[in-house]
């Protein structure tokens, strides 16, 4: 078993209204040193793949097809052997 941890973020330059609101919230709480906030998504997939290479290939395909929208989002991921 493998565990994939996938991070989906808005592409650089794409306006992030949520990030802006969170930054405003932090500023209201007195945290003045926050230069920027970007909000993204974090997904954890447990994969029944025979090896890491195949797991990574599968994750990349799933990201390209569904988990991220290439028009506005980028993704990164790491695949680790799961302990189960």
């Amino acid at each position: 078993m493998f565990e994939a941890r996938i991070y989906v973020t808005l592409k650089e330059g794409i306006l992030d209204p949520q990030g802006k609101a969170v930054k405003g919230g932090l500023a209201n709480m007195g945290y003045q040193g926050v230069a920027d906030v970007r909000v993204g998504k974090f997904l954890v997939l447990t994969l029944d793949s025979p090896d890491r290479r195949q797991a990574e290939q599968l994750v990349r395909e799933m990201c390209d097809r569904l988990l991220a929208n290439p028009v506005i989002e980028d993704y990164t991921f790491e695949v680790q052997e799961a302990s189960s």
């Binding site: 808005l10 794409i14 306006l15 209204p17 949520q18 609101a21 929208n69 028009v71 506005i72």
Partner: peptide, 10 residues
């Protein structure tokens, strides 16, 4: 073509 983002007002 294109994509939808969250409303800028949230």
């Amino acid at each position: 073509p294109g994509a939808m983002r969250r409303n800028d007002s949230l």
